[in-house]
Design a protein around this nucleic acid. Structure first.
Length: 829
RNA sequence: GCCCGGAUGGUGGAACGGUAGACACGGCGCCCUCAAAAGGCGCUGUCCCUCGGGACGUGUGGGUUCGAAUCCCACUCCGGGCACCA
């Protein structure tokens, strides 16, 4: 064993081969052929600084899958790109003055270099950054497609405004009332903004979750985010202002069965009628004050369910449509303008919030649903939110189970024209415009005469101009590029102005997986026929932090574009795998904590194979895992051992085939090899059990080592070569350089051109096995028996096992259980 | 509060209802060496032992079963998501 395992000698050599031969490129023509295709995709990186350990993990997982699919005969699309627009690069530019294009280019160069150093099998011919005009030209084209079909629109709206980043944020980017990026408190501003009509797709986004193989928790998160509620819209009429001209206020409720229990009516402070209603009632000043406070107050505090309920009476009443009762109107900040109609009927007997409000303001609490044991007593202490029979309602409904009454009352409302069944969603339309520089320009022109005019397709891309000053000022920095902004109206030719807002970067990443399929197409975003060959993505891999935003948006784009006839799949990602985080000392890695492990330094000290293999060996890839430097050493030792054994066998033994007659020692090693093939294949087929797959290759390698080093053990050269080359072949998806090198040393062939090995069933069967002998469920002995033994023979063997005999002494056998191939359990008393 | 996960040796983790702890780390011992590094071999859940074995052991308490880390019920702790959504 005089040879040392030197990754720095091995890895660049194979990388050079793959680079020179463009090994991982696939043509779209190849995809049109007979064979099966597979689209394996990891979420594209955001190029900021250097790749971190999370990148190493996601691409190690994805590459293992890609290699496994290739060697199982599929034509695999495994591309790479960069999500290059975005705030971090722009904020960096504001601090340093370096143009985002330059800092982004530097970062991309670093990613490119490291991906090659890691030996990731990428089809580089399809690479792009979302900030390149040749890409965002088509992002703009998609925007226009959506605009022309009513799926992109402008609306003056109360929007989330981040004062530090000086831009609006999508609902999804506000976390607990704070900016997802910079953490500052989000304000509400009234601004005209661009939206995508994702709410049109709420039902389909919900229903089609059934058709895809995604982790259950991700589906749940999406369902919660869509937040579909079924109920009824019910009209309450206010005749207080002018009886001749009543105003109808619809409310949404999921509990129309409790309509008879409505004892007051509440409007959101943002409701446009609140102040008008209070005028001339003596409550006007109090209402104004309350509304002002609600609108300027802390948005986060307002959202807290634990907060005490406050509100002010409007001095008006509305009529409950089911019983004609006039109930008082209130304004209260626990009612939200964004959800439903901005007004609610309050049923304090059967709703927690209404109960709290009624208690605080001394409003009547009426029971209209009986309790589980038929209770009909008062509900002064707490509301009853469960099911039961209706009471105190109306002769037509009293006694009816509330679920039935819900439908009956809804039907009655419908007949009377006072309401109808209705569905509400928590999901809001996607606010996509940003008052920032480093993003995709929105291809729209504003003309005084013609209004909003889309840029003609032939004029795309609208290229992002250079500016000097990126600092946010509450309007897009693009507004300063006056030569760029001033443009003739595409419709009438008059002087007009370009839209200066840019798109949310999530727009860029909502369709990149489509562009990979036909990345070189200069005539269209893609050829639908080519897309058909690859889509949907068979296996998508990424972090769970994208469970809602990116994955919801991409699904929406896919459905919208499919509706417009541009592609023929409804779901972009057939299977999703979310990988866990790598922590250090139990904490998330961060520069502040100083616990960052950089992939670059591990690759430099131990090689890419060690880094990749370790990160897969550390534990199940969907779980979080803690980085350990000692663990890295262990994996490095294992790779070194396999490589040295291979080198030793290649140089020290003749290149022979596996002989026809096998000695006992040969048989042991052959069985181990086939066992490993079977194990690794199973671990990679059904699930992503890379940790146990690597452990199996370790076992095989240890067996090879024993057969070489253990005195008295003799294996035929052909058998040793077979076992070692099998180990190299199985290891290749995780550690491609060592795998390729060892396989080449032993066989002279290229492992990536070899089909995935198949286990020979003949070697998976043993002649004998160790029978576990239990007495009353406890293991008392083990005996070696022939695999062919009958149940009677197994029982006899167990009964005569020495330690079983001891434990059966003086006892009566009650029952005997035989599990063939495993154990015998003799129950005795 | 609601909805998901999870809890196994000193550590990371293995275990179709059938031998708990694969594989690896760490530790201990030995071989090789003038020595070290590298490498190789062995032992390593806890306790008891007459060295044959025995008892205990998968967060806690129950249950189902010949047999439970695994299934069921209740609970504790940890992680994640949602949370005034009518």
């Amino acid at each position: 064993m005089e040879h040392r395992y030197e990754p720095s000698q091995i890895e660049p050599r194979w990388q050079a081969v793959w680079e020179a031969e463009r090994t991982w490129e696939v043509s779209n023509d190849a995809a049109a052929g007979e064979g099966e295709t597979s689209y394996v995709l990891e979420m594209l990186p955001y190029p900021s600084g250097e790749p971190h350990i999370g990148h190493l993990k996601v691409y190690s997982v994805g590459d293992a899958v890609a290699h496994f699919q290739r060697r199982n005969g599929r034509t695999v699309l495994h591309p790479m790109g960069y999500d290059a627009f975005g705030l971090p690069a722009e904020n960096h530019a504001i601090r340093t003055g370096v143009h985002p294009r330059d800092s982004t280019a530097a970062s991309i160069a670093s990613f490119q270099r490291q991906f090659r150093e890691w030996g990731v099998s990428i089809d580089w011919s399809r690479e792009f950054g979302t900030h390149e005009p040749r890409y965002y030209r088509w992002t703009q084209w998609i925007f226009l497609q959506l605009y022309e079909n009513g799926l992109a629109y402008r609306k003056d709206a109360a929007v989330n405004w981040c004062p530090v980043d000086a831009t609006v944020l999508a609902n999804e980017q506000v976390v607990d009332g704070h900016c997802e990026r910079c953490g500052s408190e989000v304000e509400l501003r009234q601004l005209e903004q661009w939206f995508f009509k994702i709410t049109d797709y709420a039902d389909r986004l919900l229903d089609d979750l059934e058709t895809i193989e995604w982790p259950a928790h991700v589906k749940t998160m999406q369902r919660n985010w869509i937040g579909r509620s079924q109920g009824a819209q019910v009209t309450f009429r206010c005749e207080d202002l002018d009886p001749a001209d009543p105003i109808d206020y619809p409310v949404f409720t999921t509990r129309p069965d409790t309509l008879f229990g409505a004892t007051f009516f509440v409007m959101a402070p943002e409701h446009p009628d609140v102040v008008r209603l209070a005028e001339g009632t003596g409550n006007e000043a109090a209402v104004r004050e309350y509304v002002d406070r609600a609108l300027t107050g802390d948005k986060e505090a307002r959202g807290d369910a634990e907060r005490e309920k406050t509100g002010v009476p409007l001095g008006r009443t509305v009529t409950n449509p089911v019983n004609g009762e006039r109930i008082p109107m209130y304004v209260a900040d626990y009612v939200l303008m964004e959800y439903g109609t901005g007004a609610i009927m309050a049923v304090p007997g059967h709703d927690e919030r209404d109960h709290a409000f009624a208690t605080a303001y001394g409003l009547p609490i009426r029971r209209v649903v009986s309790g589980p044991d038929g209770e009909t007593g008062p509900l002064d202490e707490e509301p009853y939110v469960g099911d039961g029979a209706l009471v105190n309602s109306h002769a037509d409904f009293d006694g009816m189970p509330n679920r039935e009454a819900l439908d009956a009352i809804t039907a009655w409302l419908d007949r009377e024209g006072k309401g109808h069944a209705s569905v509400n969603y928590r999901l809001r339309d996607w606010l996509l415009s940003r008052q920032r520089y480093w993003g995709c320009p929105i291809p729209i022109v504003h003309c005084d005469a013609c209004g909003v005019v889309p840029v003609p397709e032939a004029d795309l891309p609208v290229v992002l101009p250079d500016v000097e000053d990126y600092a946010p000022k509450g309007r897009s920095p693009l507004a300063a590029a006056e030569d760029w902004v001033r443009t003739p109206c595409p419709a009438c030719g008059a002087d007009a102005r370009r839209e200066t807002d840019t798109m949310d970067t999530f727009v860029d990443s909502s369709w990149y997986f489509l562009r990979y399929c036909d990345a070189g197409n200069d005539d269209a975003a893609w050829d639908p026929e080519v897309l058909h060959r690859w889509m949907p993505v068979d296996q998508y891999i990424g972090g769970v932090e994208h469970a809602i935003l990116h994955l919801m948006y991409a699904r929406f784009f896919c459905k919208a574009l499919a509706d417009l006839g541009h592609l023929d799949v409804q779901e972009p990602f057939a299977r999703l795998f979310t990988q866990g985080m790598i922590t250090k000392d139990g904490a998330k890695m961060s520069k502040n904590k100083g616990n960052v492990v950089s992939p670059g330094s591990i690759v430099a000290s131990h090689g890419a194979d060690t880094a990749r293999c370790y990160i897969l060996f550390i534990g199940p890839p969907d779980q979080d895992a803690d980085w350990s430097d000692e663990g890295v050493e262990g994996v490095h030792r294992f790779l070194g051992r396999l490589w040295r054994l291979s080198r030793g066998a290649a140089e020290g033994t003749a290149n022979e085939r596996v002989p026809a007659n096998l000695s006992d020692d040969d048989l042991v090693l052959m069985r181990k090899a086939h066992w490993a093939i079977d194990k690794v294949t199973a671990d990679m087929s059904g699930r992503f059990a890379f940790n146990t797959a690597i452990a199996a290759v370790m076992e095989l390698t240890n067996e090879c080592s024993r057969s070489v080093n253990e005195p008295g053990v003799q294996v035929a050269p052909g058998v040793l070569r077979f076992a070692l080359s099998t180990a190299a072949s199985l290891l290749f998806p995780f550690a491609p350089h060592v795998g390729a090198d060892a396989y080449d040393l032993l066989t002279g062939r290229r492992v990536w051109e070899e089909p995935w090995p198949v286990a020979d069933p003949a070697f998976l069967q043993e002649d004998t096995f160790e029978l576990v002998c239990q007495v009353s469920g406890k293991v008392r002995d083990r005996v070696t028996v022939p695999a062919s033994a009958s149940e009677e023979e197994l029982l006899a063997a167990a009964r005569s096992a020495p330690n079983v005999v001891t434990h059966l002494e003086g006892k009566t056998v009650v029952k005997e259980i035989v599990v063939p191939g495993k154990l015998v359990n003799i129950v005795a008393r």
